[in-house]
């Protein structure tokens, strides 16, 4: 069992080091395509429109002036569904900033957020 502990611990730290090296040396965004990206004008939504998407299989939220469609993300959210589902169809800035224990979301969550942005709140 002692050997198993040593081997597994070494493999774990080697894997962590591998992820660190990948972060340092690997690029994921193809650099060949240098044509300028023209961002389409953000679509504006009323809070009443957001409120029409208040279900688990159709979940929008308004956060800090933007509107997000979290329908595909909900199964990936780490917290229990009953914590996040009540915010579907609502202005959820406060929940975003304080979560359920008064703390802010992580920087990684900030990065993820952009992926689900569909427009702005009018």
């Amino acid at each position: 069992m002692r050997k198993l502990f040593i081997i597994s611990t070494v493999i774990f730290w080697l894997a962590v080091a591998g992820f660190w090296l990948a972060d340092l040396y690997m690029t994921t965004i193809p650099v060949t395509d240098v044509s300028p990206v023209v961002e389409p004008a953000a679509k504006g939504y009323l809070l009443a429109e957001v409120a029409g998407h208040a279900k688990q299989d159709d979940c929008w939220m308004a956060i800090e002036g933007s509107v997000y469609d979290f329908t595909t993300y909900l199964p990936d959210h780490p917290s229990a569904p009953e914590l996040i589902l009540p915010w579907c169809g609502k202005e959820a800035t406060q929940a975003w900033q304080t979560k359920n224990k008064g703390r802010a979301h992580s920087s990684r969550a900030n990065q993820l957020l952009e992926k689900y942005r569909i427009g702005t709140l009018r």
Binding site: F19, W20, A22, M26, T28, R108, Q111
Partner: peptide
């Protein structure tokens, strides 16, 4: 990693995370 190799490190590294 499936999304981007950098995201794997961001998932692990404590200083990119919150206290939980």
């Amino acid at each position: 990693w499936v999304e981007a190799p950098q995201l794997a490190w961001q998932t692990l590294v404590p200083w990119a995370q919150s206290w939980p």
